[in-house]
Design a protein around this nucleic acid. Structure first.
Ligand SMILES: [Mn+2]
Ligand SMILES: [Mn+2]
Ligand SMILES: [Zn+2]
Ligand SMILES: [Zn+2]
Lengths: 134, 134
DNA sequence: TTTTCAAAGGAAAAATATTTTCCTCAGGTT
DNA sequence: AACCTGAGGAAAATATTTTTCCTTTGAAAA
């Protein structure tokens, strides 16, 4: 039995969610791809679950978002992408191919906020050209 | 004649777009609100243009986006907001009320990019609580 | 193991959101 | 004033996402 699959199963159970083959497959797809949108997930999972419903993909994405297992990333000019929740990091988005890459977040960020604004967290996104598109 | 309206009219003409009352009104709404989504724009403009079509709002948003007159801002947990294009800046998003505020962008940003990544520009978004929600 | 049952999957419908079509009208030019 | 192309409105078409309804299944209890 794939050790990775066990990980996903446990991850789901820890969050009080049933571990189903469809959910495990979705997490596997996200793990391999890194960042994927609904259509990518759906097209990939159909290879293994021919009759899976797109509604199931949406429902699971929403459920796993709610449980904090995955996170949504809003990318300029693209549909939202999703990724498995991991340590806090920043993103690099290739403006040629649209790929999203994880990068380490900047050490410090000196933002000047007007009086009365209480920052909780910052997100940094770098747009540019990735190695494979140069 | 409102001086602001003249500004918008010229802005549109500079970009080879016809200056129509609906477009001018949309820009006025964006100017007053700062950051607004489609529904906000539509509901506001209906006060002055009772029979305006939602399709017109969409078409104008897309047209003005294409011309660079306005820009789209993807905000976590919200529908995209739009704003009139201005000097480069960062955003503060209130996690209580959802308002988006302009803030000055950080002086410098030292991101460590892996070999081969060519950064073009960075965008910073701060999530937190705004003065009116404290 | 079998039984049990709430949660999850699939199919279809419904609800939302966005774009396109088509025809009329109006902004900007001649 | 006349002309022409782009823009507006209404409705239809698409696209996207959620919900409903019924069947199936994961996982716990017996
Ligand atoms: Mn990531
Ligand atoms: Mn802004
Ligand atoms: Zn690329
Ligand atoms: Zn607020």
């Amino acid at each position: 039995m794939e050790t990775r699959y066990m990980e996903y199963a446990n991850l789901l159970k820890q969050k009080e969610l049933k571990s189903t083959p469809q959910r495990v497959a979705m997490l596997g797809i996200l793990d391999r791809k890194g960042h994927a949108d609904i259509d990518y997930i759906y097209n990939e999972i159909k290879k293994d679950f021919v009759s899976i419903s797109l509604a199931t993909v949406y429902k699971n994405v929403n459920t796993m978002l709610g449980a904090g297992i995955i996170q949504e990333i809003k990318v300029p000019y693209q549909k939202s992408k999703f990724e498995i929740t991991k340590h806090k990091h920043s993103h690099f988005v290739c403006e040629k191919c649209g790929e999203v890459y994880d990068i380490q977040e900047p050490k410090k960020l000196d933002v000047e906020l007007p009086e009365g604004f209480e920052p909780k967290e910052a997100s940094v996104m770098i747009m540019g050209v990735c190695p494979s598109c140069k």
